[in-house]
């Protein structure tokens, strides 16, 4: 089993891949990809029961990136995990690439769902979880949503049904990074898109946890605990994160929601991340 230290190192490498890919393409949702980097590593390198050599293995755990605009982070994770080559990352966001700006499952078989229009992935995940129960399969369905995304009413339509169908095989993780593309201003500050993620999922009948989304120890501990909870309640982990995490000038700055670094910024970011290696 991979150690926490190795997972942390992997997360740093992932951040570098996210940045190099965005730098190469001069495009990409960097901020939200960096905020969910530790979550992606904890899932793909520790928690998910998956087989990169057989991406359509029918008993695999499912993963739905409902916040589909951070496909950049997911592709870089899939490259590190061996689903695609590092070289292929250079095709990100190019015409007819398997690595579309937003996930396209018809192009890349490592993806369990096409997403990109916010709010839709969670409903599909609910369908997969209902399906797993009907098929008497043990696989779990993990769905990563955004806090901004949770302004979509469909998230709560899906949550409502998850409770009704007692989907304890559904694990929702909210990347609560506190920023969205533009959002509301409160004076000079920007207000959180979703300030009460835990309270809302609590009231929708979920079993919930709140965790530091950048603490690998805490993520692994909570995700492991969640797996052991078979009580008919759907699960929600509210992961408090920092948008742009790992690169100081990107952190907590909404401008980096969708922006690629220039030469100078890229070098600065790499230097900072190299220091973590």
């Amino acid at each position: 089993m991979i150690s926490i230290e190795q997972l942390k190192l992997t997360a740093t490498v992932l951040r570098k891949r996210i940045l190099s890919t965005a730098y190469y393409k001069k495009q990409g949702h960097v901020g939200g990809s960096l905020s969910c980097a530790d979550i992606l590593v904890s899932l793909f390198f520790h928690q998910l029961s998956i087989d990169p050599s057989c991406p359509k293995w029918e008993d695999r755990d499912r993963f739905v990136l409902s916040k589909g605009h951070t496909a950049l982070g997911l592709y870089a994770t899939l490259a590190l995990r061996g689903y695609i080559s590092e070289e292929e990352l250079k095709t990100f966001d190019q015409y007819e690439s398997r690595l579309q700006a937003h996930p396209d499952m018809t192009k890349l078989d490592a993806l369990d769902m096409s997403t990109g229009s916010l709010g839709q992935g969670l409903s599909a995940a609910v369908g997969m979880a209902i399906g797993a129960k009907r098929l008497k399969k043990d696989f779990r369905v993990y769905c990563l949503i955004g806090d901004g995304e949770s302004q979509e009413g469909q998230i709560w339509e899906a949550a409502n049904i998850a409770e009704k169908y007692k989907l304890d095989n559904l694990i929702v993780i909210m990347d609560q990074n506190g920023l969205q593309q533009y959002g509301w201003k409160n004076g000079k500050e920007r207000m959180d898109p979703e300030r009460y993620g835990k309270r809302k999922f609590d009231s929708f009948g979920f079993e919930t946890w709140e965790v530091d989304g950048h603490s690998m120890e805490d993520l692994i501990a909570v995700l492991t605990e969640v797996k052991g909870s078979v009580n008919g309640l759907p699960k929600a982990i509210i992961a408090n994160t920092t948008k742009g995490k790992g690169v100081r000038f990107m952190e907590n700055n909404y401008v980096w929601h969708s922006k690629a670094p220039n030469d100078e910024e890229y070098q600065m970011a790499l230097t900072e991340l190299e220091g973590e290696d």
């Binding site: 369990d112 839709q120 609910v126 399906g131 098929l135 009413g153 409502n160």
Partner: peptide, 21 residues
């Protein structure tokens, strides 16, 4: 029964289809 929530109902159908229904 998916209740009065058409958007979710269609999404749930997609998820069910993805696992063979």
């Amino acid at each position: 029964q998916m209740g009065i929530a058409e958007q979710n109902m269609v999404g749930v159908a997609a998820g069910l289809a993805s696992v063979g229904f």
